[in-house]
Design a protein around this nucleic acid. Structure first.
Lengths: 193, 193
DNA sequence: ACCTGAACACCGTTCAAGT
DNA sequence: ACCTGAACACCGTTCAAGT
């Protein structure tokens, strides 16, 4: 039998939570590639303790995002069932862009994880792509997006825009999203005409 | 009097060129954030020699890009004088995206340099933005792009797409460029209708 | 069961000493 | 005028030793 379900030691639980809290702070300040030694230092634990709880950076980031992703993905599934597929797609893209920009460099992590099935973040990327795919399919059925648009296009836009949001300027990144979404529309359905 | 115009020592010149050659190789393999120690090692010089010639990473990258940028920017100026402003804009964007993707992480360097007037790459970013501005102005006069489009939008698209090209997939990044350029068009002028 | 911190390998950057 | 490489500060990651 494994130890699943076993109550963890009280100090271990506290260490784990301290590390998560400080990792969030360090990643917000210095990006998702921020120093793990500084995380351990700020959390008041030895570096080995950090590695004991989170063997890789992907696992640590994955633990930090777990809750936020659960909420985000559940909401994404609900969007799929809505009645305005165009607005659903736009709202989804904007929300994920904002989320992905919370840590500078998170888009790079997602890019690496999408291509690496071993990464702890791979399932998250797959889920994100799947939701995009569903939203695109609904919009395609409604005839509001170009017929050649795919879920992958949405994933690329979201990550590229998140990169721009964190590295260049939030406002400019939002403009980029707006222009590109307009480019996603089916010919002749643009709002401006 | 400064030593400008003075003939550099033969060994110094060779070291400089060796460092440039190996830096290009290392940056192509490992990105623009690749190890400078490995560059020096591969070039057969001490680390201090590298720093003597190139005091910062920006200076080194700037020296590597100088020629390519001269060619690129001269061509960009010529594009401005052409007779099809829409094609000119598209060709410019696609060429710069491909260029910026030669070193993974170069878009990040450009993003940092655009915001930092002290960076050796800042003038390059300013020049890139200025050419984009001129191309957008010409396209706006011709009525082929939305009136609210700016040169900054072009800069953002180019860097975000270069990021996507290097981190995700070249083909997908090109699709993103295509969609976004379509979003740049003035209402009612899309090719597909 | 978990924590500690030394150990190893690597890197960026500076600078006194050489030629 | 230029080159060298030791020195310092920092980091990622592992693992034997402790409790």
């Amino acid at each position: 039998m494994s130890s699943i379900g076993r109550r963890p030691r009280a100090d271990a639980l506290r260490n784990r939570q301290q590390v998560l809290a400080e990792a969030d702070a360090v990643f917000r300040e210095h990006g998702a590639a921020g120093s793990l030694e500084s995380v351990a230092r700020r959390a008041g634990v030895a570096i080995g303790t950090l590695y004991g709880h989170f063997p890789t950076r992907h696992v640590l980031v994955g633990a930090l995002l777990r809750e936020r992703h659960d909420t985000l993905f559940t909401w994404g599934d609900e969007l799929t069932a809505g009645d305005d597929p165009w607005d659903a797609l736009g709202n989804w893209v904007r929300a994920v862009v904002e989320h992905t920009a919370t840590y500078r460099g998170l888009a790079d992590l997602f890019a690496a994880s999408a291509a690496d099935a071993e990464s702890e973040l791979h399932v998250d990327c797959a889920r994100m792509t799947a939701i995009g795919e569903a939203l695109v399919a609904a919009a395609r059925n409604a005839g509001v997006v170009r017929p050649d648009l795919g879920g992958e296009d949405v994933f690329v836009l979201m990550n590229a825009a998140a990169w721009a949001r964190a590295q260049l300027s939030p406002a400019e990144a939002d403009r980029l999203v707006g222009f590109t979404l307009d480019g996603f529309r089916a010919s002749g359905t643009r709002s401006g005409r």
